[in-house]
Design a protein around this nucleic acid. Structure first.
Lengths: 186, 186
DNA sequence: CCACTATTTGAGTGTTAACTCTAATTTGTG
DNA sequence: CACAAATTAGAGTTAACACTCAAATAGTGG
């Protein structure tokens, strides 16, 4: 793949794959559907991807990365910023958010590598939330902060899950309710 | 279906369907897989069920009902009892719990009737939790109680979702952490 | 034990999935 | 502008899918 035509085709295929997973789930994401939406024939698809699974995994990695846009900057975010970043992710990239949830539930069952990746990602998020909590309330024990972080991350995932079911669901209001509660508990 | 042989076969088919959805997701739940696991041939399956979808919907209804075992007794449960009932559901009927989550994410996308059913079920649960909260703190406004109930139910769903990803996840500990937080917030 | 019907059998149907292959075309480069 | 490599076209293959059906078997009331 050295010509730009190939790169553009690859992008179109990934766009189509992403929107199909988000809209119809993994079951509705067939090679034919991807190719139709991307304006490409199967031969072109298989010139760029070794398999359907590879295209899907590319989109999934993209989705996982989008949940945590800046995993390097570990020491600066406040809890509010972390929660609002997740809220913004759900609002602004609903397709990727759906992919993330769909894959977490459907794909991880049959693909242990994927389920391991998702669990590690979850643990990383919990650590990040925990250190934000500790920065905010420095007298809190690390163990306690981790427990509170885990509760918060799980609750956020619950919100994301419900958003998949109900597109009109008010993510922002519920994310903020979680933050208020966290502040009240201390 | 008047002979008991048919009833037993039906049970075996539903058992197989339930465990396949829980274990491999909707994609892995094929007629062949169901029949192999139930020790039955396709002809028998179609003697008892009009379609694969019908068998799946039967299992899904069963799962939805199991989440709220007694939807009639609306006025007596405490919040603790409701949370512990859900915790017990997740621990004791992991297959049905996985079915519930899997369907919420995968099935509801393509089946509006199913997604409507799940949303109504969610609303019913929130009402039930809200009235338990109000009974416990009678000075609380109904609107506020409903908002707190929704946060709690979503957090519990987050726990259930994570349990699908990580079978070793400690549901009980996290459910109790939610209860403590709820008490602390008031 | 007999007639009647529920149930099971298992090969078979049509469809659609993922994926392959060869020939034709387009693209970048010396 | 010529040539090699990248890309695309599109028919074709193989396998798995949901589902059917006529015949065989098993269960039940009389």
């Amino acid at each position: 793949m050295r010509y730009k035509a190939g790169l553009e085709t690859k992008d179109r295929i990934l766009d189509a794959t992403r929107s199909l997973i988000a809209g119809k789930g993994l079951e509705g994401t067939t090679i034919k559907a991807i190719c139709d939406q991307a304006g490409v024939l199967p031969g072109s698809f298989y010139n760029l991807f070794a398999s359907k699974e590879q295209a899907i995994l590319t989109v999934v990695r993209e989705a996982i990365d989008a949940v945590d846009p800046d995993p390097e900057g570990q020491g600066t975010d406040t809890l509010d910023e972390l929660v609002l970043a997740y809220e913004r992710f759900l609002e602004e990239q609903p397709a990727l958010a759906r992919v993330y949830i769909r894959i977490a539930v459907s794909g991880a069952a049959t693909n242990p590598e994927l389920s391991g990746r998702l669990l590690r990602h979850h643990e990383g998020r919990v650590r990040r939330f925990a250190s934000a909590i500790q920065r905010q309330a420095s007298e809190m024990a690390e163990e306690h902060a981790t427990r509170r972080a885990e509760t918060l991350v799980l609750a956020l995932n619950g919100i994301a899950l419900h958003r998949v079911l109900d597109p009109n669901f008010d993510v922002a209001a519920h994310a903020r309710a979680l933050l208020e509660d966290a502040a009240a508990v201390g």
